Amino acid sequence: MCNDYEQHIAWAEYCRMMESLALKIPSHQTELDLPQADDIHINDPAPVMRAAGDAIELASMTFGFPPAGPKGGPVFNFRSEGRQFNNSKRCLVPASAFFEFTGTKYPKTKHRFTLNGHSFMAIAGLWREGVGNKPPTFTMLTSEPGPDVAPYHNRQVVVLRPSDWAAWIHLTKSEAELMLPLPEGSLSAETVRAGSE
């Protein structure tokens, strides 16, 4: 499952994409709200996109919902099938790439996935307010794997078409329409680290 992703999105490119989608950015936001990172892991802070009035703002949150019980770990991936999210806090996780791992021995082989035709992607997510003095948290939604991810993993994060970003934030389409893997050829995969045999 996706527990590692990369965020190298140029502020100018982010602004161009948002403008092309007719999505407003709050006037106070700058490139400082979109920090660069080679690897964002569980429990790391990262920017997510969420509704803020008639705009979409970037807000820093921690990757992974807190454990549900004393023995559990953070919930960083959340199954989307059969669920309704109209009463959930929905967000988009901007990423230039996400990683999947194959193999049984550490270090595993690391594969980098990017969205063809775009410099970055947005993964469907959910967010929750922080408890006490802790920051808000977010998790990524998952689905059955599409043809581009199936050779590497039996699940995948939900990468939304840019034209569906607002539909997810405002839930103007059904979950069944949005929580689907992209068609074959939408994602490119490259092996960035060979693992142990």
Rank of each mutant, 00 (worst) to 15 (best):
K110N: 03
M49S: 09
L115G: 02
I123Q: 01
W168E: 11
K134Y: 08
A55E: 14
R155V: 08
F113T: 00
A124K: 03
G64M: 06
F98M: 06
M121F: 00
L160Y: 08
S88Q: 12
R161E: 15
P151Q: 05
I25Y: 03
T172D: 10
F85A: 00
P135M: 12
I56C: 15
S96R: 01
M61I: 04
H170A: 15
D164F: 08
H8I: 07
H111Q: 06
V157H: 05
I42L: 09
R128V: 13
W11D: 01
V48T: 13
G69V: 05
R155H: 14
G53H: 03
G73R: 15
G69H: 10
A37W: 06
G103D: 02
E144W: 07
I40W: 02
F120D: 03
M49F: 08
A166I: 06
G103F: 03
P35V: 08
I9C: 07
F98Y: 03
W127G: 04
Q84I: 08
A12W: 03
L34P: 07
D54M: 11
K173L: 15
E184Q: 15
E190T: 14
N116K: 11
T62E: 08
A167R: 12
P162C: 13
H41F: 13
N116V: 05
E175I: 15
A189Y: 02
E19Y: 09
A194T: 13
G73A: 14
E144N: 12
S143H: 04
P162N: 13
L92Y: 09
V93T: 04
M179C: 14
G132D: 05
I169S: 01
R16N: 12
L23C: 13
P47C: 01
T191Y: 00
E6T: 05
